[in-house]
Design a protein around this nucleic acid. Structure first.
Lengths: 203, 203
DNA sequence: AGGTCAACCGACACTAATGTCGGTTGCGCG
DNA sequence: CGCGCAACCGACATTAGTGTCGGTTGACCT
C-alpha cells in the first residue's frame, strides 16, 4: 500500500470526544436533519462507519452531545455563582456567567437553547427538559425579588415575565455573536438596567 | 374506473393557496428538512407531483410561504397601529398587536421568527431580512423613549436592549402556546410593566 | 513474542426523498 | 359543441443518507 497519511488510532473515549466535538459544531451549524453522519465523520477524521462503533445511531449521538454540553453548562454556571452577596449581586453574577458561557461556547448555547422545531419525541423531551431547568433556576432567583415588591411569582403575568427575561437573554447572546467587539460588561449593564428600572432613567 | 371520491379540481391560485396553507403548517411543525413534499401534498389533498405544477421546488415553496406570511404579518400589525396617542400608548398597541398575531397565527410566528439553523443561503437571507425588519421597527419605536431619558439609541448597550425586548416577546409568545388560558391583556401588562419599571414596584 | 480486543474501514442493502416525463381529464371559452 | 389549456396523476430515474457486515490491523497485556 502506498498509504502515507498515518491516521492515528485513538482510544475509544478519545475518539468519542473528537466525534462529539465535531458533532456539536455540525449540529449547531446546520441543525439535526441537515447534518449528515458522513460530514460529522469527516470532521472527526474517521470513516463514516466508525461512527457506529461508538454510537448506535445519529439520534443517540445528538442526545449524547446534548447531555455533554448541558453538564458543561451547569458546571460553567455553577462554578461562577458563589451564592454570596445580595440578591441583586447574585443576579448580576448569573447574567454575567450566562454571557460568559455564550461567549466561550457559542455552538453549545445554540444547540441547547435555540428553539428548533424537532419532530423526534425523545429529542424534544430532552431539550425541553434542559430548557425548563434553566427556566426554573431563573424563576427561583427572581421569586424573592418579586415577593419583595408584592408580586406573586406563581401568577401568570409573573411567569410570562420570567420567560421574557430568559429568551431575552438568549436574544442578546445571539446578537452578540454578530457584534463580538462589544464587551461583556456592556451587555450585563444593559440587561441589569432594564431589569431593575425598565426603560426609565439609567441609575 | 370505480373511482368514487370526486377530487375537486381547483383553479391554479386556489390550489396554490391550499398548498401554501398546508406547507405553513407542516414546515412550522417539523422544520424545513424534516418536512417532506409528500406529506405537504397529502395535507393539501393532491398527489405529490402536483406540487411541481405549482412550485418549482421545495425551497421555492418555503420562500413563497415566508413571503406570504410576512406580508400577512405586516398587514396585521399595520392595521392595528394607528400611530395615534402617546409613545407609551403606541408601544402598548404594538405589543398587543404582536401578541394578537402570535395568537391567531401561531405557525406563522414560528416559521417567521424561530431561529432555526438553516444551511441554504437564500433561505437564511430571506429570514434574516424579515427578522431585521422587525428589529428595525421596534428600535425606531424605542429610539424616542431612549433619547428622552438620555440614552443614545445607537450605543451598543441600547441595541442589545432592543434585541432583548424583541426576543423576549417571542419567548412570551412561545410560552403562551402552552398556557392559552392566560388572557392576552395579562401578557401585555406584564411586558409593559417590565419595560416601564423593570422589576421595580408595579404601578 | 504472540494473542486478543477494539478501532478502523470498504462494500453493500435499504429507505426515503426530490424532481422529471408522458399521459389523462375536467373546465372554461369561443 | 368541441377545442385547448392547465390541473392532475402514476411510473420512473436519481440522489443522499442511514445502518449492517465482514474483514484488517494497530496497540496493549501477559
Amino acid at each position: 500500500m502506498v498509504e502515507s497519511a498515518p491516521k492515528s488510532r485513538m482510544s475509544g473515549p478519545a475518539r468519542r470526544a473528537v466525534i462529539t466535538a465535531a458533532a456539536l459544531r455540525i449540529f449547531a451549524e446546520k441543525g439535526y436533519h441537515a447534518a449528515s453522519l458522513g460530514e460529522i465523520a469527516k470532521a472527526a477524521g474517521v470513516a463514516r462507519t466508525v461512527m457506529y462503533d461508538h454510537f448506535p445511531s445519529k439520534r443517540v449521538l445528538l442526545l449524547a452531545v446534548l447531555q455533554e454540553q448541558n453538564t458543561a453548562l451547569v458546571e460553567y454556571i455553577g462554578a461562577r455563582i458563589t451564592g454570596r452577596g445580595t440578591a441583586r449581586e447574585r443576579m448580576r453574577d448569573t447574567v454575567d456567567a450566562y454571557f460568559g458561557f455564550a461567549q466561550s461556547r457559542p455552538e453549545a448555547r445554540k444547540l441547547l437553547f435555540d428553539p428548533t422545531s424537532e419532530d423526534d419525541p425523545e429529542i424534544r423531551t430532552v431539550r425541553w427538559g434542559i430548557r425548563e431547568a434553566r427556566t426554573k433556576a431563573v424563576a427561583a432567583m427572581l421569586a424573592q425579588d418579586m415577593r419583595e415588591i408584592g408580586v406573586d411569582p406563581a401568577e401568570p403575568g409573573a411567569e410570562a415575565v420570567v420567560e421574557f427575561i430568559i429568551t431575552g437573554m438568549d436574544g442578546v447572546a445571539q446578537w452578540w455573536e454578530h457584534r463580538p467587539e462589544v464587551p461583556r460588561s456592556t451587555l450585563v449593564e444593559g440587561v441589569m438596567w432594564l431589569l431593575s428600572s425598565g426603560l426609565g432613567p439609567r441609575p
